[in-house]
Amino acid sequence: MTASARPWFDPELEPALAGLPPFFTTLEPDGIAEFRAALASPPPIADVIAGRPVEVSDHVVASADGTEVTVSVLRRTDHEGAGHPGAYLVHGGGMVAGTRWSLGAMLVDLVLEVDAVVAAVEYRLAPDAPDPAPLEDAYAGWAWFTDHADELGFDPARVIIGGPSAGGGLSAGTTLLARDRGGRMPLAQLLMWPMLDDRVATVSAQQVDGVGIWDRTSDVTGWTALLGDRRGTDDVSSYSAPARMADLSGLPPAYLEVGGAEVFRDEVVAYASGIWAAGGSAELHVWPGGFHGFQNVVPDAAVSRTAVATREAWVRRVLG
């Protein structure tokens, strides 16, 4: 097989690709505004909660440069005590789109299913706010959330961090910053098809070109919006692009999932391998025939149901 061979798509998943807007496959710089608009209005969180016993509070947190960002905290309305688990989630969107409420359903499910206190950060988006703003926003939210564990009613030693796509990359970067800045470390990392490598030079990046969701051109667009002319050069921080981190020791256990037919496949496999090489724990799932975010696009497909059930079982096992 050559690097340019078209990837295999699961036959239950592939038909869904035909009905998507072109910018979901290939995002050019001039399409960022349209892409952002498409992801800007997820269902209101009140509709997601739908009368169930979940309360939401918004908090203003100062990022490293003094900019104020919002961190929303969700917990049960009858929440009591301080021994509960916590979760801090970072949304996806290729560094250029999305909101914290893009993960609304997952946030609410974590509150109800494991009685967790859950937070989501509204980090700034590139290219309006280039690197390191998104990462520093994510880190500031994480530090604030874990520093206020007693007040919010959870155990700061039982908190996972994670998110999909760009949110997975920012979660990995936040964990690396916490390790190297002496901050509080998460109990575990939930890295869902994470965006880790600005160089966009793997075999899977070459394969997923003009097909699937978030192809090679899209990845270049997202990383260039974040990094500008530094993308792909030696002048890129290994916290902003965690695939560049040479030392992956001292990290909490990681759950990594990725589709077999997406750009991020090989960089996710390499990141898991780096954790293993450093003596760490990584649970890696490469779902055959899956394009980027397939679990959300075709949730009833067999591979989607299996992927989601496997992830949820891991969360229950870790948070107990």
Score class of each variant (00 low, 15 high):
1 M>P: 04
7 P>Q: 05
14 E>R: 10
16 A>G: 12
22 P>G: 11
23 F>I: 07
24 F>D: 00
28 E>V: 12
41 S>K: 14
42 P>C: 05
43 P>I: 10
43 P>M: 10
50 A>E: 13
50 A>K: 11
51 G>T: 12
51 G>V: 08
54 V>L: 11
55 E>F: 08
55 E>C: 12
57 S>T: 13
57 S>A: 14
59 H>M: 04
60 V>R: 12
64 A>P: 11
75 R>C: 05
79 H>C: 06
81 G>Q: 06
81 G>F: 07
82 A>H: 06
82 A>Q: 09
83 G>Q: 05
89 L>H: 02
94 G>C: 15
94 G>A: 15
96 V>Y: 01
101 W>L: 11
107 L>G: 03
109 D>V: 11
113 E>K: 13
114 V>D: 04
115 D>M: 01
116 A>K: 02
117 V>C: 08
117 V>K: 00
119 A>C: 06
123 Y>I: 12
126 A>W: 12
127 P>L: 09
128 D>A: 15
133 A>M: 11
135 L>H: 02
136 E>F: 05
138 A>R: 08
138 A>L: 07
139 Y>E: 04
139 Y>N: 07
139 Y>L: 04
141 G>H: 02
145 F>T: 00
150 D>F: 10
162 G>E: 04
162 G>V: 00
168 G>S: 13
168 G>F: 14
171 S>M: 13
172 A>M: 07
173 G>E: 07
180 D>N: 14
183 G>L: 12
186 P>N: 13
188 A>R: 07
194 P>G: 11
194 P>D: 03
195 M>H: 12
207 Q>R: 15
211 V>C: 11
214 W>V: 10
215 D>Q: 14
216 R>N: 08
222 G>W: 06
223 W>I: 05
223 W>V: 06
224 T>I: 13
224 T>K: 05
225 A>Q: 01
226 L>V: 00
230 R>H: 10
230 R>Q: 03
235 D>A: 11
237 S>D: 05
238 S>L: 07
239 Y>K: 15
240 S>H: 11
242 P>I: 01
244 R>N: 01
248 L>V: 09
251 L>D: 00
256 L>W: 02
265 R>L: 14
266 D>C: 08
266 D>S: 09
267 E>S: 03
285 H>V: 04
287 W>L: 13
316 R>G: 15
316 R>K: 15
320 G>Q: 15
